[in-house]
Structure formats: C-alpha cells, structure tokens
Design a protein around this nucleic acid. Structure first.
Lengths: 344, 344
DNA sequence: CTGAAAGCGCTTACAG
DNA sequence: CTGAAAGCGCTTACAG
C-alpha cells in the first residue's frame, strides 16, 4: 500500500478565483445546471479550460452520492461479445463523464453471489448493464432490485426487473436464417441448441421450429441435439447427428462456436462443405469469418445496444418505451452456398 | 444526471461507536497499520463484520490521495488477449481492494493521445498496466512517466520506463517452434511476420532466423512475407508464398490470426494440411484450437503475467528484480503433424 | 440568479 | 498505543 502521491491538482476553488465567482457557480456551470447568466457561464468555462481543470471524481462522488461508475456484469464465454458490449458502454461513459467497470460474475462458483454482493457494496456503481447469460438469472436481477440499483438488459429475459431492455428479435432472426436454408432446398435441417436456462438459446430454437412449421414441416427429434455454446459441444453434437441413418443436409447451431465445432466434425469425417452439408451459426463473431469455409450467421448490434443501454441508465428519459428492438442482419457466407473467391 | 440515491450506508463512525474506540483506530485496523493492541484489533474487526461495514472508496480516495484504481491500457486486436490480461489483474485487484479500469487507447486516432491524457486526468489511476502493442509505444510510456504514474509492461519493450516487466522469452519460444519444424524434416520454412514497430513481432522473427542458422540454413528472403497480425494479412501473405516457384513446406506465422489466414488460403487452393503444408502460429488463442486442423502454436501465460504485474504495482517490493520471465509452452497440434482422432 | 456554510466519510498530521 | 482536529474537493440545502 505505498503508491506514489501526485502533486496537488487544480481544484474548483482555483477556477472560481480565476473567474471571480463562487465555487458554487463553477459547480453549476460544470454540471449544466440552470440559473446561471450566460456571461458568467462563459467566463467560468474559459477559466476552467485555461487552467485545465478536471473535477475530482472522488470528491464529486462523496459530496453528491453518485459514484459515476457504470458496471457491466458479464459471464459470456465469448470474449468478443464482452468486448463489443464494453466498447459501446465506453462510448456513452466517455460522453457523460462516467467510468466503466466491467466485472465478471461467475455464478457457478460457490461464492459467486457473495462476490457479486461484495462488488456492489464496495464499488457502488450507480447503475448496471447485464449481458447474457446474467440477465436471465433471477438471482442477479433480484440482488440488483433489492439494492435499488437501476439496471438494463441486453436480451429478452422473461419478467425481468430491468428498467431498460435493449435487444434484437432473436426469434425472427433464427426463423429467417432457417427459412433461408429451406429456400436453398434443404428439408432435413438439424439444430444444435444452446444451454438450458438461456432465454436467448430457447428463443433461437423456437425460431427454428416456427420456420419448419411455416413450410409445412414437422420438427424431427432425431435432428435436434443439445449443446452448451462451446465448440466441443458443437463438435460432439454434430458427430452424433452425422452417424444417424437420417443424416441432415444442413445444421443450424445456436451460436458460432458450436457451428465451428460442427464444421470441424464434418471436415474430420471427410465431408465437403457446403456440398455435402451446410452449416450456419449465430452471432457473427470473428470465428465465423475466420474458419474455412466462412459461416453463414446472424449479426446482432451488440455494441450499439450496449451504448444505448448505458445512455438510458445515465440519463433516464421517461418518455422512452422500456424496450427497444434493434435490427439484426442475416450474413450469408460460403458455409451454406457455393464457394466463390470473393467470400473468402 | 438523475440516478437514484441509495439509503445511508454504515460508516466508520458506526463501527467506532459499536467497538467503543475512535474512528482513527478503526482506520488503523482496517488498513493493517501497526500500533494497535491485539485485543482492540479484534473488537474492531468484530464490530466491522457485525455491521457489514464497507469503507467508502470515494472518501478513502479523497482523504488519502489514492484512487484504488488500476488501469489496463490496451489496444490489442485480439479480444481474448485483453480478456486474459484483465482476468489476471482482476484477481490481484480483488485481493487488495483495488478496482480495475480497462481502457482501450487507439493511438492511430487523431485525438488518441489527447484521450489518453484526458483519461489519466479524470480517472486518476494509481498505476497502469500496459499490454502490447501499447507498451512498445514511447508516447504512452513518456506520458505515464511525466504524469508520475507507475506502470508495468507485459512485453520486452526496449528501454522502457516501466518499473516492472513481466514477460516470457519470445525469442526462445519462436526458436523452439521453428526447431520443431526443422526436426520434422522441413527445410523450406516460411515466416509471416508481424507489424513493424512491435517489439514482440520482431523478436519472433529473430527466433525464426536463429533457429534456421542453428541448423546451418540461411534465411531465404522469398520465404519471408509481412503481415500485420490480422487474418486477412496472413491470408494474403500465404497466397503470395504459395504461388512462388520455391514453395515452402511449412509456414510459421507470428500470431494465430495470421496462421488461420494462411490455413484458409491453403485450403482454398486445395492443399492438404499438414500433408502438403504445415502451419504454425503463436499465442494459443481460441482460434488456434477452433480451426481444422488445429494449430501448433506457443502458449504464453498472459493471465499470470498480468496478475503478477498488478500485485507488484499495488504492493511494490524493492527486493524483486525489475524483470520477471515466465515459462511458455510449445503446443503441438495437427496442423504440423499427422492427424489423429485425439487431436481434435 | 448567486453565494456562504455545512457536510459527505474517510486519512493525515499532530499531540499525548 | 490511541484520539481529537483538520482537511481532502466537491455538492447539498439554505438564504438572499
């Protein structure tokens, strides 16, 4: 506990003195409060800039009972998803002078909930953004509600206590992807589902079912295998699918990682993709375009959803509806169609 | 700017009253300061626990001139690398009551340096951890040195001002990897190098050169192509290599992403891996084991290096040498050898 | 529209 | 070994 001290920084009193006003007036100007004459506002701004003044966050927080901290609680196994969300939250935080505290919450650990409590009590974030799978967990949302901490969710958890829900239409996205496969002429389309308890995973399955039914097809249970979002589970599920008497001609995996696992399983069996079997994923992670052939998948605007969630939490606007649904994109690549040079 | 207020929390005075001592004594106990009678220490600890007391970080920071914030400045295009480093830093921060503030610094942006300054002035971290490529950039280290902020580096930047350097031996790792390829019988081993100005990238190249020379081989310039760590650059570099009259039988890429690009290029040309060409990468990211065939690569202990760096910054120990070198691991997979079921 | 005073919850510097 | 006072740099609540 012996980190260096830094020299004394410019304070609000320095600015007040230079501007010839009280500290309170400086505070008003910097916090965009009303009731300051335009002329004074200008003088204060100039004095502040000339001095290179930066308010001390600790002092602001202590006096004002706000921490200016926005926490992002996450436990997604795909680092890229977490990074995308962080990027969006950063953008909003920077604009409003907040800081982002990303925090992994491992609920599977014995002391997972205790650690969450400890984090909330020590860091004292003003608000929290929850990404899947944490937004699906009642223990997390209950904890936040009890602590009186406003929170936003980036997925459509049922009956969530989140004041804000920023999501895309996963049901329609999954349906459109499977409809695309049907359109290509596939009739035996298998699905590798995501982990139980994940709302997003089950919604993607519902989209698959509805797409088949829309084409007058029924869901064949031998064509549905369960995974847990990991590559290995996708690989093993595909191995089970590919030895069945009724082999699928296409596989839709509930995320890209499992789709890559399926791809690997197919290649290892000497199958050609997409000639022998088509494979599609969900999320458009880096993996999706890294593998050969690259994956057809769904792109969701994670960063943008996160940015809007952060903005809503920082600056609540009661006129906005609680839920906002953003556009997704069906990204067609070589794993479900003819391979051309351009698709590399 | 209207986030909810939370009810008043337990303060140091509450604990002092319950324990029948002064606030100063409570402070001493909680900060592990000397000169407190064991009996009093015990009473204070019990009162603190009974009340569920958590010191207010804003008050601690304001009074003590420490922010209890550790910043991780990063700009690595591989989210997984950043996540691994964060994980290690988290572990140390939790143990010492610090908070981690990961911050992306994009120096290519016009206002990149200005944003870095703004971040340091507003967040006021007590110390900073730098990961590649930021630790190689003198503008960053100069900024930190001028601001008097202690910092640690996770790579062997030359003449760095970092008080702590936690790294692995990249030169030896690259050399061992190439020696392994030589051992398999390869003589025409190509390399796809990393971006200029990255110390780590040039060190990996040096290891490649020394391995060849150690076997009495010279570096053939047609076998060296430049990349920038992206998959696309690896793909394009491999395309150039694979149309040459003297084709390599093995390719060593300076990171996994470029190796995956090379893999894709080879597969698109109809080559078999490893029968027609062997490919190896560096870093052992998720990509390395996700692709087919999985990549031979080098694993470096990113999370462990980050954890130690954080511990050193939080609790400096002058008896430690400035530089600490951790072990790496050569991970052999199917991309450089016979494909067996187990290697999936 | 503006300001003087009090206070947020700690640690520092000092006294004993 | 222990404590009373002052102060960190802001915002709140109040007065005018």
């Amino acid at each position: 506990m012996s980190l260096n001290r830094r020299p004394r920084a410019i304070t609000i009193d320095d600015v007040a003195e230079k501007a010839g006003v009280s500290a309170k007036t400086v505070s008003r100007v910097l916090n965009n409060e009303p009731n300051v004459r335009a002329a004074k506002r200008k003088i204060v701004m100039e004095a502040s800039q000339a001095l290179g003044y930066r308010p001390n966050p600790a002092a602001r927080s202590l006096a004002g009972a706000k921490s200016f901290l926005l926490a992002h609680l996450h436990d997604n196994p795909v680092p890229e998803y977490v990074a995308s969300a962080n990027e969006g939250i950063y953008a909003a935080c920077r604009a409003y002078g907040y800081f982002l505290l990303p925090q992994r919450v491992e609920l599977d650990a014995a002391d997972g909930l205790a650690r969450l409590d400890a984090f909330l009590l020590t860091a004292r974030p003003d608000a929290v953004i929850l990404t899947p799978p944490l937004c699906d967990d009642v223990r997390v949302t209950d904890t936040l509600t009890r602590a009186g901490i406003p929170h936003a969710s980036l997925s459509a958890a049922q009956n969530t206590t989140a004041e804000h829900v920023l999501r895309h239409d996963e049901h329609r996205a999954a349906r459109e992807l499977v409809e695309y496969l049907l359109h290509l002429g596939h009739t035996d389309i298998a699905m590798i589902t995501g982990p139980e308890g994940h709302k997003a995973a089950s919604t993607r399955y519902d989209g698959y079912v509805d797409a088949l039914r829309g084409s007058g097809l029924e869901v064949a249970s031998p064509l549905v295998e369960h995974g847990d979002y990991t590559m290995r589970s996708g690989l093993e599920a595909a191995q089970r699918l590919l030895v069945k008497t009724r082999k699928p001609t296409a596989i839709f995996a509930a995320n890209d990682d499992m789709a890559v696992g399926a791809l690997t399983a197919a290649l290892a069996l000497g199958l050609r993709i997409p000639e022998d079997i088509s494979i599609a994923g969900y999320d458009d992670t880096r993996l999706a375009s890294a593998v050969w052939p690259p994956l057809t998948t769904i792109r969701q605007p994670v960063s943008e959803m996160a940015r809007r969630a952060a903005e809503r939490l920082i600056q609540p606007d009661d006129s906005q509806p609680r839920e906002e649904i953003l556009d997704f994109e069906l990204v067609v690549r070589a794993s479900t169609g003819p391979v051309t040079r351009e698709q590399i």
